Simulated scan of single mutants.
Amino acid sequence: MGTPESFLRVGVIGCGNIVEQYLRTLPHLSRVRLVAAADLDPARAEQVAARVPGARALTVDELIADPDVDLVLNLTIPAAHHDIALRAIAAGKHVYGEKPLADTVEHAVDVLAAAKAAGVTVGAAPDTVLGPGIQTARRAVDDGLIGRPISATATMATAGHERWHPNPDFYYQPGGGPLLDMGPYYVTALVSLLGPVTSVVGAASRLRDERVIGSGARAGERIPVAVDTHVTGVLVHASGALSTITMSFDTVASAASRIEIHGESGSLIVPDPNQFDGETRLKVLGDEEWRVLEQFAGYVGAERGIGLEDLAMEGASLRASGALAFHVLEVMESLLESAHSGRAIAIESTCERPAPVPLTRIA
């Protein structure tokens, strides 16, 4: 899609907290340029545009219609992902969005169908799996360092984002919760490591119906909770491996908030999938100690937004693809469906394991 002589012109819609992480990355990407910013709060768009030479602050309508924007970077809240993506696609633009791909599988079907009809590409976070942390673990699995993979555990346990986020309402509305918010990092990593999922069994609970904002101008304000805040379950991979997953906003702390992969002859401790870096540790049957693997795969120095560079280079075959994000969303939605129905749910979609990332240093 991009060449060394050209670059992908990006317009960002949604200039909230997460945009800061993208602004740290975009100046270092050779095939991507941020050219416009829009937000329902014009002042926030102006603040972003002022920090990027040549970027313009626009309204959402203006950005979507702008012929100088090739791709819309959709950083809106989950409930708006579907609408913004469809509008951008209708304007002939590629879309790369924050996770999840949409707030429901039904909405995600609309997005991918529209993109296919329009001949544009859809990509989606998380792109943390492209960093050397997860990619080194992926290479270890592919190279047979643990033998045939048998099982995995994936745990994320916190007390809830309202303790630090000044406007946490969307975390506790449909499209949010620990599974839809943090689950994409863990499920995407599990699919990258072990392949697609064929069925799930889940259980879920909700500790309380209100949360108290802990920081910012709204500190002390109570907000309603409309989602499950503790979700656990088992993913059955097409490879035969079984992954046990726990995502919780109801836990004070956990020493095991990580992924572990277990094979016939060894085990891996995988770095935090919400980060690009970190140690991958290996213990082979008979070893007394864990050893840290040298990083030998992934985008070194990457931060959020590296998926845009991958999209510019790879186009429709990008690694942080809409197809992968759709499969991950269906897995998560099916876990919640299983939790409330009490039965196993078959996963209808599938996807290719994303191609591994060779060791590549970001300029």
Rank of each mutant, 00 (worst) to 15 (best):
D39N: 14
L101N: 03
V32C: 05
D83A: 13
D70I: 14
V72F: 09
V69C: 08
R44D: 02
A50W: 05
A90E: 14
A88W: 04
V69D: 06
H107F: 07
V60Y: 01
D70T: 14
Q47M: 13
P53I: 12
D103V: 10
A90S: 14
G92R: 09
Q47I: 08
L73I: 10
A50F: 05
H107Y: 09
E46H: 13
P100G: 09
V52C: 08
N74V: 08
L101T: 07
D41N: 15
D83R: 14
A36L: 04
V105D: 01
T59S: 13
P78Q: 13
R87D: 04
A90C: 01
D66R: 01
E106P: 00
N74A: 10
Y96N: 06
H81Y: 11
A45Q: 06
V95N: 05
A45G: 10
K93N: 07
T76I: 09
N74W: 05
L40N: 12
A37D: 08
A37I: 08
V95R: 04
E46D: 11
H81R: 15
P53M: 10
A43Q: 13
K93Y: 06
A37N: 08
L58W: 12
R33D: 03
L71R: 10
H82E: 12
I84K: 01
L75A: 06
D61R: 14
G92K: 07
V95H: 04
G54P: 10
A45R: 03
R44P: 00
A80W: 02
A37F: 07
V105M: 03
N74D: 10
I64N: 02
A38H: 05
E98H: 12
L34W: 02
